[in-house]
């Protein structure tokens, strides 16, 4: 088991390194640089040259990459090129904002989705099953920003129930925070519920068709006990997989939602950084996103292995 985890971790680090090279190369390929972005239409060749020299952009790209990597390995994310603040100071508060929103959405979305999935499996073919499927598919088919605007129009502009800006700040009360972030939470919930719900339904149904479940019914167990005690635990592995995948999506895929609600998270941070060509900031944000993605997928894999004895002991099943 430890070996499995270590090997996975190694692959994760390798992936992270490849991402860092790709992001660096990508930012280099993009037209313009941070000096041009800072000066905009006011740029003159002299002021550009002066600014490039101040920022150390006259050093060759490969050299800049390795000095960044050397600092990164030591846990130093470097300084923003545009305002000379440490990237870590700018990045972590926004990372925790994104995590908080993702957690809020996950706390609502995942239990809801799993419950709906189990119920629609139990009542397969019923009106409930069909209605839940249709609604979930409809919401997942709408783009996030459109759903967001629709909800703002209904719940914010017309009725004034919830604020349209997810305006959060330090020292704000927990209830105020919940209220400010409820609209983005609803959007994120709507776009993630469908997949988890349908995967849960399929997984539970696959188990429900097994002979031992039929045996359970034959010996007279009540429906709820059959499902919760005997079916769901055996359907857990694929459910955990899709849940982890959706949590990763909640963390990394919120850029559009953050833009619509003006939420101060990592997605907006990254958009800013890219448009200013501020490489240390782009790299920092990309590393965090990539690490979150890799880590959650790894946890899903390990979770699946832990729950499945055949995967847990590969040698035994091979022999």
């Amino acid at each position: 088991m430890t070996r499995v985890v270590l090997v996975r971790l190694g692959w994760g680090l390798l992936t992270l390194w490849i991402v860092s090279v790709l992001v660096f190369a990508g930012t280099e390929i993009l037209p313009g640089d941070v000096a041009a972005a800072i000066l905009g239409q006011n740029a003159t060749p002299e002021s550009l040259a002066a600014l490039r020299e101040t920022l150390g952009l006259d050093v060759p790209a490969v050299q800049r990459y390795f000095s960044w990597l050397a600092n990164f390995v030591r846990g130093d994310l470097g300084q923003s090129l545009t305002n000379r603040q440490p990237v870590a100071d700018l990045l972590w508060p926004r990372f925790w904002n994104t995590m908080a929103l993702a957690a809020y959405a996950a706390a609502v979305s995942l239990p809801l989705a799993v419950t709906l999935g189990i119920l629609s499996a139990v009542w397969r073919g019923s009106v409930f099953d069909r209605a839940a499927n249709v609604v979930a598919l409809a919401t997942v088919s709408l783009p996030e920003y459109f759903l967001g605007l629709l909800l703002i129009l209904l719940l914010s502009v017309h009725t004034g129930l919830l604020p349209s800006l997810a305006d959060t700040y330090d020292g704000m009360g927990f209830l105020a925070w919940l209220k400010a972030t409820t609209l983005p939470m609803i959007v994120l919930t709507l776009v993630t519920v469908a997949q988890v719900m349908r995967m849960t339904r399929t997984a539970v149904l696959a188990v429900m068709d097994q002979p031992y479940i039929e045996m359970n019914y034959l010996k007279g167990l009540p429906n709820s006990r059959v499902v919760l005690r005997h079916a769901v635990p055996n359907a857990a592995a694929p459910i955990i997989n899709v849940v982890a995948f959706n949590i990763a999506y909640l963390i990394t895929g919120v850029v559009l939602v953050e833009a619509v609600f003006n939420y101060n998270g990592l997605g907006r941070f990254m958009v800013d950084a890219v448009s200013k060509r501020d490489l240390p900031m782009v790299q920092g944000a990309a590393m965090v996103f990539a690490a979150a993605y890799i880590l959650l997928n790894m946890m899903a894999d390990i979770g699946a292995i832990a729950l499945n004895p055949r995967l847990r002991h590969p040698r035994i099943s091979e022999s």
Partner: peptide, 19 residues
Amino acid sequence: VIVINDIAARTNALMSGQV
């Protein structure tokens, strides 16, 4: 000052009275 770069978000904030 609340920085709202997205024009739709800015308009919504004004219409819902947040700014």
